[in-house]
Amino acid sequence: MDWRDVTVYVNGDEYTKTIPVQMTLAEFLRDELFLTGTKIGCNEGECGACTVILDGVAVNSCLVLAVHADGKNVLTIEGVSEGELHPLQQAFLDAGAVQCGFCTPGMIMTAKALLDRDPAPSREVIRKEIEGNLCRCTGYNRIIDAVEKAALMLQKR
């Protein structure tokens, strides 16, 4: 097997590990760092449950090699709260946007990447942005409500 040393900055912490090149970033987060908030659903980029923010943009961590995160910043669901719940997390709870919860971490990371770029997106923009995140429970409307709510909370800050 082909092994490499990598240093990845996850949620602000530095981690150095020796890993096989075929390990995905999703597996690195879950199995090496035990950050199991990031979920693996389809493992082929369809469902978005493994979405994390890599150097500022949302990616499917199942389609990124962990070695390609070497030297980069990764933000996962474990890193979004700042002492108290992040407005997105609070809004998801308030709006009833969480049912089984499996899609929620990925959904929140996609929404965070959107709000970081566009602090006041329309419902249409939100709907389009979460096109790569499947939810089989909510019917999406409450998720869109939650992202709108979070955008307002963040604007008031």
Binding site: G45, G48, T51, V57, A58, V59, N60, L63, V64, T110, A113, L114, E129, E131, G132, N133
Partner: peptide
């Protein structure tokens, strides 16, 4: 193409 996550990569 695909989704935002796919289009970023």
């Amino acid at each position: 193409v695909g989704s935002p996550q796919i289009r970023n990569r």
